[in-house]
Amino acid sequence: MRKTLSGFGLLAGATYPFRVLAVFRRTPRLWSYVAVPILMNVIVGIALYAGLLFFGWDSVTHLMDSLTHWVDSLITSLPRWLGILDYLIIGISWLLRLLLVLGLLLFTGFLLVQFGVLLGAPWYGQLSEQLEELRTGQLHIVEVGIVRDIGRAILFELKKLVLAAGVGIVLLLLNLLPGIGTLVATIGGIALATTIVCLDFLDAPLERRRLPFREKLRIVFRSLPASASFGLVCFGLVSVPLLNLLTIPLCVASGTLFFCDRVL
């Protein structure tokens, strides 16, 4: 079974964020390309977590307080023997609080990826070049000039936003349907986040070839299921608070290894 899954790439794709550690161990000079991005991630991460988690936790607390008051007012009109529902509601409220906080952590980690990859792009680009040359023995770059290069980077971010917003609206509407709609929206949300993460971490070698956005997206889909497991593991690694300050550079490097092995 394991051999079959590995043959399709499902297991192999998930291992790339860890394979790159062996490459760094054998090639210590590569660490010089991640030192500055890690420092930048620490600064950006502290700002994001301090801001979003503070206001997010405050919002969750207000929401839970409102829900508790509403339930208390509802229970007062019920027979006394139904007072046990109060304990049930307390348990549900804490479960909702936990789910909301987990969602907030995932969202914060997702934002950290966007800012971290964008700010660390010069260093990540050099790291990716070194890895590709080390892995394949050659380096392919299409030069377009600094102005066009900046324009492409801005367009790439805008197109990702359009993709996320377009699919996100559909998923939000599906979430209004009870039962199956919520399940489909949850799975779709994870798939969308995984796709965006794949685009981010595979972008360095793809952008060196100046591929259009749709071609980058097609490469992600053509690499399934390896790209799905790769993106899912990376999404998990960058969603863990504090750990993601270190794993973002590793995921960027593993994206280049994935490209060299499974796309080239």
Rank of each mutant, 00 (worst) to 15 (best):
R2C: 09
R2D: 09
T4H: 12
G9E: 04
A12V: 10
P17E: 01
V23D: 08
R26K: 15
R29V: 11
S32K: 15
V34M: 09
V34A: 05
A35D: 11
P37M: 08
M40W: 14
M40Y: 11
V44I: 15
G45D: 02
L48R: 04
L48Q: 05
L48W: 06
L48H: 05
Y49T: 02
A50L: 14
L52M: 11
L53N: 00
G56E: 00
G56P: 02
G56W: 00
W57M: 12
S59R: 15
L63T: 14
M64A: 15
D65L: 14
H69C: 07
H69G: 09
W70K: 12
L74M: 14
S77N: 15
L78S: 07
P79D: 06
W81V: 10
L82G: 07
L82E: 07
G83Q: 14
D86R: 15
G91P: 00
S93N: 13
S93Q: 13
W94P: 04
L95G: 05
R97E: 02
L98A: 12
L100Y: 00
L100G: 05
G103R: 06
L105N: 03
L111Y: 10
L112I: 13
Q114R: 14
G116P: 03
G116R: 03
G116C: 06
V117E: 01
G120L: 05
G120R: 03
E129G: 07
E129Y: 03
Q130F: 04
Q130Y: 07
E132P: 03
E132Q: 05
E133T: 14
L134G: 10
T136D: 09
Q138P: 01
Q138N: 10
Q138G: 10
Q138T: 13
L139Q: 09
H140K: 14
G145T: 13
V147I: 11
D149M: 10
D149L: 12
D149H: 13
I150A: 09
R152K: 11
L155A: 15
E157S: 13
L158F: 14
K160R: 14
K160L: 13
L163K: 07
G168C: 11
G168A: 10
V170F: 06
V170A: 10
V170G: 06
V170T: 09
L174H: 08
L174I: 11
N175P: 06
P178E: 13
G181E: 06
G181P: 01
I187T: 13
G188C: 10
G189L: 00
A191W: 05
L192D: 03
D200E: 15
D203S: 07
L206E: 00
L206D: 01
E207C: 08
E207D: 14
E207F: 09
R208C: 06
R208P: 01
R214P: 08
K216P: 02
K216C: 03
L217A: 03
R218W: 12
V220A: 07
V220K: 05
S223K: 03
P225F: 07
P225K: 08
A228N: 09
F230Q: 05
L232T: 12
V233K: 01
C234P: 04
P241A: 01
P241M: 01
L242I: 15
L243E: 01
L245F: 05
T247N: 07
T247K: 02
C251R: 04
V252S: 02
S254P: 04
G255I: 00
T256M: 04
L257V: 08
